[in-house]
């Protein structure tokens, strides 16, 4: 506790670093996964390629990916960009499947009646299919958010500063309180992101408010490493 009180500034700085590293992947992966997920659902061939690719990408452990990415895209090993890109890739790998499943979850009758009353394919996607798959997308995004916040910490071992630096520093200097503080703040940050998404969901999908699930019920596995 003494350590925590003496180092509030440090904890705050690392928390900000953490937010800067974890927000872009969450936003970017959603924007990238949307067209990819649509494509995965639309054609049989693209479905196989995209979903298999996403599955394989998701199986790649994060730490080795942090080492391999610089060799592929030319970023520096200790560049925050490296971590952001890697986590965006994971987010996309997960969200592509969620988007495809979410679009699938829209009742075929609703889809057909939308066409019947005169929606074009384009407007039907934006005004009917996307909003109706919203709950599934939201649940998937919540998993991505929690997982991303947790994964950012791994970057600390290659020198990208975040709350994870409290783990490496605490470990090397033998300060238990520092590690525990890092754990608590990381989990807390994940909860804040999660809460923010739930709130956004309520605002954006008022028709779903009554049935808003308290837990992400998209059965996707969270990756922690």
């Amino acid at each position: 506790m003494t350590w925590v009180l003496a180092n509030l500034g440090l904890i705050w700085a690392r928390t900000l670093d953490h937010v800067v590293l974890s927000l872009p992947p969450i936003v970017l992966c959603f924007l990238i996964a949307l067209p990819l997920g649509w494509l995965a659902r639309r054609y049989r061939i693209s479905r196989g390629i995209i979903l298999t690719g996403a599955g394989l990408l998701y199986a790649v452990p994060s730490l080795p990916l942090f080492f391999v990415l610089p060799a592929v895209i030319g970023t520096g090993l200790r560049s925050p960009l490296n971590v952001i890109i890697a986590l965006t890739l994971y987010g996309v790998a997960l969200m592509v499947r969620v988007v495809s499943d979410g679009l699938d979850s829209v009742d075929a009758d609703v889809r057909q009646s939308a066409s019947a009353v005169g929606y074009s394919a384009w407007s039907r996607f934006w005004q009917v299919e996307l909003p109706l798959s919203g709950p599934v997308l939201l649940a998937g995004l919540r998993v991505v958010a929690v997982s991303t916040v947790s994964l950012v910490t791994v970057g600390a071992v290659i020198g990208v500063q975040s709350l994870g630096s409290l783990f490496t520093d605490g470990f090397q200097r033998g300060i238990q309180a520092e590690i525990i503080a890092g754990l608590v703040v990381t989990v807390g940050l994940a909860l804040v992101f999660d809460g923010g998404l739930v709130l956004a969901g309520r605002v954006l999908m008022p028709w779903n408010r009554r049935a808003a699930p308290s837990k992400p019920n998209v059965p996707v596995e969270l990756r922690a490493t």
């Binding site: 929690v146 709350l163 783990f167 490496t168 989990v187 909860l191 922690a224």
Partner: peptide, 18 residues
């Protein structure tokens, strides 16, 4: 759910200290 939100590196280093 709680266990999954815990960052692995934190758990590893903490147990290693113990």
């Amino acid at each position: 759910g709680g266990l999954r939100a815990i960052p692995t590196l934190g758990l590893l280093t903490l147990v290693a200290l113990w």
